[in-house]
Design a protein around this nucleic acid. Structure first.
Length: 544
RNA sequence: GCGCCCGUAGCUCAAUUGGAUAGAGCAUCAGCCUUCUAAGCUGGGGGUCGGUGGUUCGAGUCCACCCGGGCGUACCA
């Protein structure tokens, strides 16, 4: 049982016995100052108003009816305006480290959502060009959220959705065809609005090599589009794989048409009177469903807009039985989802299972100037370039360090310069240090032991112990609010606690029982750090 | 114009989702290696938390209004 859970089970009956049935959840937080205890609750402050009592007096009443285990709790204090502060027995905290050894590589995982299925859709960039640094943020965040969900029990499918039926992909195919014709000797100016990237010419060159001039009359949507989609995807998948990211499924728009899902959805809308025709287009009555305005779902050209396949696609997610459906995309797609959700709701699907996560953009600064990214204009810094420069670990850690709502600035030159001093090395260094100690201990014939953990009572030892015991709480919390950045913040603190412990507490060469206990503590720290890094997809080197 | 997001140290970002004296990294200054990895540790300087009001025991966090920036506001995705 975690420390938090213990306190929870301590406080709940006390509140009941005092007839304090508030809806307020019992929040247990860790005070900034150690003099305020290991944990603190503000429950008396929250309940004081309802009970119409003085908060300090109420805190006294609650504290008096607590029945703490003397082997666990050192003391309970009332402080400030009415906080109840809890101090654990040092021996109890130290002995709690045993849980870490028992669970080992699983320490940090929990069972809360066992049996639940989640779908995490991320990246979902259309295959029109290489992944950029901006996509990198989405890719890393999505993959880490998926990992977090797995750690708390979900069975998770990582999914990538892309549109290959619309105008954008036709434009791509056309770009390839025009380059192909140029390579055949046709002279004309390449249109400004088409895809300018060099990879377009490369694909055209391959087609030329394979088919000669036989594709002169090939429609754009045939070999040209097919080749572009295939080749670009090959690249995309390679980039993702470098970062340790693999999607279980690539779901494409075309398949929705082929399986008749689009037409049957359209039929349904028409039958139920949710759509109507106007000016040659078919509109969805979104205003009636509470949104801003009706929107077109089939253009007057007969071609659906992205909304229709998006809705059909999400229906498949419900049909596939997911308990949690996560859509992660950049703020430029902000406008698309309210329509989709409203439509799904009107169709009777439990939209509360859908969590739409929106991350803000990455502003790239190169040579002191902001890079305005555009795939069409071939103006971008690719994710591959970034990984080439700083490596996988730094890339993954960097994106996970920031909350998804931050409009992050990314100075490429600074990133290169500072990659040696990136915070990820701080964690990896702690891990490598511990590994080194373990090697030295083996050589010295020292074995770790949990028999004498109670000895660990110095401030540095206790601080590290408390930090390590928090790990499962942090993972659960991060998973429930879908924020991996809570984990990076925590790991930095855990590594800091270790480095301080290391500085002040010698492990090898002190009294035998102390030596064994400290070695155990170091090993526990290694377990937490390596588990945390694994969760983030960052390597935990044994030597640096 | 309207909607969403953001504004915290010189720079890049945190802040236990309303808690007690706002913290890290980089940069900067001063210390610490004849003993387990100095990619580390200790200490200093650096802040009107964009601004003004409000809500309450308590606000960086919630509300209103301003200022500044990002992204949307399609018969593109």
């Amino acid at each position: 049982m975690s420390l938090r859970n213990y306190l929870h089970s301590l406080i709940t009956p006390a509140l009941n016995s005092e007839m304090l049935f508030g809806n307020e959840p019992i929040v247990l937080e860790i005070p900034q100052q150690t003099s305020h205890g290991d944990f603190s609750t503000n429950i008396a402050l929250l309940l004081a108003k309802k009970a119409n009592k003085n908060p300090r007096a109420l805190a006294q009443t609650i504290a008096a009816s607590l029945q703490p285990d003397e082997a666990v709790i050192e003391k309970i204090e009332i402080a400030g305006p009415g906080f109840i502060n809890f101090f654990f027995k040092k021996e109890y905290l130290a002995n709690s480290l045993k849980d870490i050894f028992i669970q080992n590589e699983s320490y940090g995982k929990s069972q809360k959502y066992i049996g639940k299925k989640a779908n995490v859709e991320f990246v979902s960039a259309n295959p029109t060009g290489p992944l950029t640094v901006g996509h990198g943020r989405n890719a890393v965040i999505g993959d880490t959220i998926a990992a977090l969900l797995e750690w708390v029990g979900y069975s998770v499918d990582r999914e990538y959705y892309f549109n290959n039926a619309g105008r954008q992909m036709r434009m791509l195919g056309d770009s390839v065809k025009l380059r192909y014709l140029q390579q055949l000797g046709d002279e004309f100016e390449f249109p400004e609005g088409h895809y300018q990237g060099g990879y377009i010419s490369d694909i055209a060159k391959q087609l030329l090599a394979e088919f000669g001039d036989s594709l002169r009359d090939e429609p754009v949507e045939g070999k040209f589009k097919e080749a572009a989609e295939r080749e670009i995807f090959k690249e995309l998948k390679g980039t993702l794989k470098r970062l340790g990211i693999e999607h279980k499924a690539f779901y494409n728009e075309n398949s929705l048409y082929e399986e008749g899902k689009i037409s049957s959805l359209l039929d349904h809308f028409q039958k139920t009177g949710l759509s109507y025709e106007q000016e040659g287009a078919i509109w969805l009555k979104l205003a009636e469903l509470g949104n801003d305005a009706d929107k077109v779902i089939v253009k007057s050209t007969g071609e659906p807009t992205y909304r229709l396949p998006d809705i059909a696609y999400h229906i498949t997610k419900f049909e596939r039985g997911y308990d949690l459906i996560i859509d992660l995309f950049g703020s430029d797609h902000k406008a698309t989802y309210p329509d989709v959700l409203a439509a799904l709701k009107s169709l009777g699907y439990p939209v509360e299972r859908v969590q739409v996560l929106i991350h803000q953009f990455v502003t790239i600064i190169k040579d002191g100037e902001v890079v305005k990214m555009s795939t069409r204009k071939a103006n971008y810094v690719t994710l591959d370039e970034l990984v080439d420069e700083v490596g996988v670990d730094v890339t993954r850690y960097f994106f996970n360090m920031r909350s998804i709502g931050s409009h992050m600035n990314f100075d490429l030159d600074l990133a290169k310069k500072q990659s040696d001093e990136n915070p990820v090395f701080y964690l990896q260094y702690a891990h490598a240090r511990i590994c080194s100690i373990i090697r030295n201990a083996e050589e010295a014939g020292l074995e770790s032991s949990t028999d004498s953990l109670y000895i660990l009572q110095s401030p540095e030892e206790q601080a590290l112990i408390k930090e390590l015991l928090l790990f499962p709480d942090v993972v659960l919390y991060a998973a429930e609010i879908f924020e991996a950045q809570k984990v990076t913040t925590y790991l930095r603190e855990a590594a800091e606690a270790f480095h301080k412990f290391y500085t002040f507490c010698r492990i090898i060469g002190v009294e035998k029982n102390l030596s064994r206990a400290r070695l155990s503590l170091a090993i526990a720290a290694k377990i937490v750090i390596s588990n945390g890094l694994r969760l983030l997809g960052v390597s935990a080197p044994e030597r640096m």
